[in-house]
Design a protein around this nucleic acid. Structure first.
Lengths: 190, 190
DNA sequence: CAGCGAGGAAACCGATCGGTCTACCGGGCG
DNA sequence: CGCCCGGTAGACCGATCGGTTTCCTCGCTG
């Protein structure tokens, strides 16, 4: 079987969903979503039980690429400190893009408000993975309290992406500088 | 003239709006809003031009009380450091409440996505006031870079309230500890 | 070629959206 | 008393919501 087929109906739908939900929020309509994806509502409701499931699936699909964009590959050399700071540099880089609206997973959690919503569970899992990655690097770097440091870094990460996405902060080294200060205090050396 | 009259139509409407928009998000309907407030749609549309204006006005009304809850009164003694940390203690206290959904102003900015929306402008102003308060205290305390410190504290504040509101973080000293670390690094003494 | 299934177009469902408007009610005031 | 005014209740508007269904056209396969 070929690994490169033309994008399936499902793929087109989830790609459009990821983009529209991110740009316009979760209250975008099914009609507009299907029109954009070039997929009929009939097909959408054969693939998914509800709009909520489409949202959840689109976030799930987005997760690996999101992580890859933020995290340096396992091959890239670098100290734990460098690997952590790389994440914040990437956020700052992304945040200057014209369509930047902050972390899509946090946005979904804020908009849905219900932690039990299927999409909320997906989003929470994605955030958990970043927390885990921070903790792993904190441990490797010999931080005094890796769990504490990882949670602190998540505060900065989410604060920075939310504020930049809302256009009330420009970052511009701010996130990296703040993370760096926390790394210093945690005893994570160069 | 009496300072205590029974709540005016406008007051009842804005109080209900603040609560519903916060609890259910900005996409709550005008119908449900008016029913909850005990105000007819007719009255609402005589007082405001649109639902968007109601949202903006409800946030504006909420702002002073929100600030008062977070900030110690000007009479309360305390070093700048103590006054700053008080804010984070208050967030942690509020975040354990059952209906906590994070900072209502940041939530509105995230949900609306449009920085030009009238309610977004109100929300941005409210956030700016907290930033100003942080910077003032940072200056009073002799921080090396008061503007930088204030922006860092806002990252922590918004990250902490968003994550606690989304139920993916419990705080429990985390926000205060993180702020404290940043204060140390900025040279703001006890 | 015939037959079949996937999927698009679009009508349709009841409910709700933001917003307008009419009808009515009650209290204050001449 | 008679009038007006602030307000409520709720019908109503066209549009859209999430979701279902019908119809028809493709392209594949035997």
């Amino acid at each position: 079987m070929a690994t490169t087929e033309k994008a399936s109906t499902r793929d087109r739908l989830l790609d459009a969903a990821a983009e529209l939900f991110y740009r316009d929020g979760v209250s975008i309509g099914v009609e507009a979503l299907c029109r954009t994806a070039g997929v009929s509502k009939r097909s959408m409701y054969q693939l998914f039980d509800s709009k909520d499931e489409v949202l959840a699936a689109s976030l799930e699909r987005r997760a690996p690429g999101y992580a890859a964009q933020l995290m340096p590959g396992p091959e890239d050399a670098g100290t734990p400190r460098e690997r952590i700071l790389y994440v914040f540099e990437q956020v700052e880089k992304a945040s200057v893009g014209p369509g930047y609206q902050g972390c899509p997973f946090l946005a979904a959690l804020v908009e849905l408000k219900d932690p039990e919503h299927p999409a909320s569970r997906v989003a929470a899992t994605a955030k958990q993975r970043l927390l885990d990655a921070f903790r792993t690097q904190a441990e490797l770097g010999g931080a005094r309290d890796p769990e504490l440091l990882a949670r602190q870094l998540m505060l900065v990460f989410d604060g920075a992406s939310a504020r930049a996405g809302a256009r009330i902060e420009t970052l511009d080294g701010l996130a990296t500088a703040t993370a760096s200060t926390l790394l210093d205090a945690a005893g994570l050396p160069e």
